[in-house]
Design a protein around this nucleic acid. Structure first.
Lengths: 209, 209
DNA sequence: GATGAATTGGACTGTCAAGTCCAATTGCGC
DNA sequence: GCGCAATTGGACTTGACAGTCCAATTCATC
């Protein structure tokens, strides 16, 4: 796991840090809505009321900004998922998690899909560095799912031979695929069916009481 | 299901049709490798040895060309999948299908992912027309999977309550999610795990002998 | 309040890509 | 072979976008 050196200036005052953070947050929102290719630096400038020189003062180039956007989106998604995962103590909780995902997707009409998934799809074959970072994002997400499953398995024992990380990977695949189909069909139905399949998959590996 | 009027000229001689087809095929290859945003018309011109006026003679604009690319990629994928699906007569065949998918993905090092999935991710939120066409692509793919499952269920009976189209949707979600993670991690492992989950899901709905 | 670094403003350049236009050439049908 | 439509070549226009540059202003610190 290589550590990427942040391209921040040597010294950052509170004001500078705020501007920098505002740029990243604005860029993340725009890119989340229109993709990397659909978001120009001029767009970011206008939306964050910042000048060109500020952009290039805080970031070496567009790619550097995008890397920060990936990091922000990852922490946003993981934070949202964590709030659903830390309360995971029973299969009923697992179903609540499933319903929350569907509700969230329904609230935006399926639009946007998964911010991380969209970035991965757009950047993985284009920038090796971005791909590596995004692979790390997925890895963290899987680890978080695995953590929730571990908590589940303390109550309901895990069937011998069950591999929690592998199950987590399969669950994440279902999430990503379901979100992509939901985004394309503008229906939550594919996400529901994908998550239901994933839930069954988890249950299959637990020894029920 | 609305039918999209093709933007072809009134009359097409054999030579014209060949040029048109060559443009679409070349564009499909380039876009498959670099995405829509990463492929300029100049790139298409160079790769297909065609002039600017020819592009605009056969297609109204870039969007029109992209629509044809979507159609071509869809038929390519469905043809490849059909060849794996028509031979589906037992669970062993299902596993062979799974292995073929993994082998194909391994052959390209995970790169590219699913052409349709990549297009959907890039275009669904950007062009309503493209989204509609891509939703149709997924629908056709699901129908083809459902067809294969139907053939399976004539040998091994289907469990009551099992909904073949729903299962097909879940299977397609697993494919898409697995391919996206494979593309990002450059490993076939996520695809394998996602497909294995999907296989179990199918088996769960069949009454075994 | 002086000083130098951090921060900000915005004009400017070069490049690339989409789309236009007109002229030349090919080839089908009579 | 003739005429007209299909086809082809490529220069040109327009706009957008990444990135550069320099000057102005704010602010922390002494």
């Amino acid at each position: 796991m290589t550590v990427i050196a942040p391209s921040a200036p040597i010294h950052l005052t509170a004001r500078g840090a705020a501007t920098r953070a505002r740029i990243i947050a604005t860029a993340a929102d725009l890119i989340g809505a229109h993709g990397v290719g659909g978001t120009s630096l001029d767009d970011v400038m206008a939306a964050s009321t910042v000048s060109k020189s500020q952009l290039y003062h805080y970031f070496a180039d567009k790619d550097a900004l995008i890397r920060e956007v990936i990091t922000l989106q990852t922490s946003r998604v993981l934070a949202a998922q964590r709030s659903l995962m830390v309360t995971l103590d029973s299969l009923a909780d697992l179903r609540r998690w499933r319903n929350s995902m569907v509700d969230m997707n329904n609230a935006v009409g399926g639009k946007g899909g998964c911010p991380i998934g969209s970035l991965a799809n757009e950047l993985a074959d284009h920038s090796e560095l971005a791909r590596t970072i995004l692979a790390g994002s997925f890895e963290s997400w899987e680890a978080q799912i695995a953590e929730g499953l571990d908590r589940l398995s303390t109550r309901d024992a895990l069937r011998p031979g069950a591999n929690v990380p592998d199950i987590a990977t399969a669950v994440l695949s279902a999430i990503q695929g379901g979100l992509l189909l939901a985004k394309t069909t503008r229906t939550t139905r594919p996400l529901e069916l994908a998550l239901d399949m994933a839930l069954r998959h988890v249950e299959d590996h637990l020894v029920m009481a």
